[in-house]
Simulated scan of single mutants.
Amino acid sequence: MVQAVFIDRDGTLGGGNEIVYPGDFKLYPNVQHSLKQLKDNGIKILSFTNQPGISNGLATKEEFDEELKEFGFDDVYICPHDPGKKCACRKPRTGMLLEASNKYNLDLSKCIVIGDRWTDMLAAEEAGSFKILVQTGSGKESLRKFHNKEYFGRWNQVTTDFIAHDLNEAIHWILHES
C-alpha cells in the first residue's frame, strides 16, 4: 500500500518550465480533484520542491506553504537554498524525503515521487521510492535527454517506473493500476 506521494510543484502541479511565485501560480486542469482523490483514499500528499527564489528574497517559505496547503497538501517540504550552496535538501539530494520519512514514520519504499525533472527521479531512486515522470513542464525535455543519453554517470543510470502524460494520469494510475 502506498503510504505517501511526494509531488514536485513547478511543471508538475501547474505553472511551466520556470518558477511561478505564489499568487500567480495556477494548477493544471483537474489537478485539485486528483489530489483530493489521493486524500480520499488515505494517501498522504506531500510537496517537495526546490525554491531558490526564497533565498533571493523573491518570495517567502510561508507564502509557498500557505499556497500548497490550500491545494490540499498534508505537508510541504521546500529547499529554499541557492543551487550553489550544496545543501542536503536540494533535489536531487534526498533531504526533504528523509525529513518527511522521519516526521511521519514513512517507509520510503512504499512512497511515490512524481515530478517533471530528472532531479526528482534521482532523489526518488536514492531514497528507494517509486518514480513517476510527468510529461508536463520540463518532463518531455527530461525524457528526451534521457533517451538521447545526454545525462552522464548515475544521471543516465536511473530510469522511471512509470511515465504519465500529466499529474492526473499519474494519480489515476496510482489509484487504479499500481
Rank of each mutant, 00 (worst) to 15 (best):
M1K: 14
M1H: 11
Q3P: 00
A4G: 13
V5M: 09
V5K: 06
I7N: 01
D8E: 12
G11Q: 01
T12L: 09
G16P: 06
G16W: 10
E18C: 02
I19C: 01
V20T: 15
Y21K: 05
P22Q: 07
G23R: 07
F25I: 10
L27N: 01
L27A: 09
H33V: 14
H33C: 05
H33N: 14
D40L: 11
G42W: 05
F48H: 12
T49W: 07
N50R: 09
Q51E: 07
Q51G: 04
A59P: 00
F64N: 00
E66M: 10
E66C: 03
E66A: 11
E66W: 03
D74T: 11
D75S: 13
D75E: 15
Y77W: 14
Y77F: 15
D82C: 02
R90S: 09
G95P: 07
E99H: 09
L106H: 12
D107H: 04
C111D: 01
C111E: 06
V113P: 02
G115I: 10
W118S: 02
T119G: 00
D120A: 01
D120E: 01
D120L: 05
M121Q: 12
M121P: 04
L122Q: 14
A123Q: 00
E126F: 05
K131R: 15
G137Y: 09
G137A: 02
K140T: 11
S142W: 06
H147A: 00
N148T: 11
K149R: 15
E150G: 08
F152C: 06
G153A: 10
W155C: 00
W155I: 01
T160P: 02
I163D: 00
A164Q: 07
H165W: 01
H165R: 13
H165E: 14
N168S: 11
I171H: 03
I171G: 03
L175P: 12
E177A: 11
E177F: 09
